[in-house]
């Protein structure tokens, strides 16, 4: 599994598509688990199982997640929980991942493993 993280709008999905060899078309990519941070939020709202979500992410070829932990601590408790669970899940996925990239201004920075770019 390849983990791609970074801030909003940094070019993560475009890079993930390059990695997975899929075209820039509109078709959803089966190989890419995009917007993991939103899946975590939905899972918490619905009282779902985060470990099942982690398992699904681990089975994907490429996982894309926004970094959401770099702001002032939110006043809302559920938002605090969301960003912490997302951060911990990304740590767990990074431990298992073959390669981890962080995309900054469209530039992929390889944090773990062998860079393919």
């Amino acid at each position: 599994m390849i983990l791609v993280v970074g801030g909003a709008g940094q070019g993560k999905l475009r890079f993930a598509r390059e990695l997975s060899g899929s075209a820039d078309g509109d078709a959803p990519d089966a190989a890419i688990f995009d917007k993991l941070h939103l899946a975590v939020r939905d899972c918490l709202r619905e009282g779902g199982d985060l470990s099942a979500l982690a398992e699904k992410a681990l089975q994907s070829r490429v996982v894309v997640c926004d970094e959401i932990g770099c702001g002032i601590v939110p006043l809302d408790r559920e938002e605090r929980r969301w960003r912490e669970e997302t951060g911990r899940l990304c740590q767990a996925l990074a431990r298992e991942a073959e390669t981890v990239y962080r995309v900054v201004c469209g530039i992929p920075v390889c944090l773990k493993g062998e860079s393919r770019c």
Partner: peptide
């Protein structure tokens, strides 16, 4: 340093 729950 790092963001929330980054492993710092």
């Amino acid at each position: 340093f790092g963001g929330s729950a980054c492993g710092k």
